[in-house]
């Protein structure tokens, strides 16, 4: 079995109102050094294979077809 992590983040230039709201709240609590925070998504995945090359290829397909929308998001895969 292979375990992997997928990180999906908004592309630069795509508005992230939730991230902004979180940032405003942290600034409001006195964390004045915080200058930017962007919200993303994190997935933990298990694949029933030991073939790391296959796993990488399949994980990329998951991201390209469903998990990320390339118009606004990019993804990073980490096989553990």
């Amino acid at each position: 079995m292979i375990k992997a992590q997928i990180f999906v983040t908004l592309r630069a230039g795509v508005l992230d109102p939730q991230g902004s709201a979180i940032g405003h709240t942290l600034n409001g609590l006195g964390f004045a050094e915080l200058s930017s925070i962007r919200q993303g998504k994190y997935y933990e995945v298990e694949l029933a294979t030991d073939d790391r090359k296959l796993a990488q290829a399949q994980l990329e397909k998951y991201c390209q077809t469903v998990i990320a929308n390339p118009v606004i998001e990019s993804f990073r895969i980490e096989i553990l």
Partner: peptide
């Protein structure tokens, strides 16, 4: 329609949240 690729672009959360 946007998610399926029948239309270009995407609909994001409202700016005012």
């Amino acid at each position: 329609l946007c998610e399926s690729g029948l239309l270009p672009g995407v609909l994001l959360s409202n700016q005012g949240l």
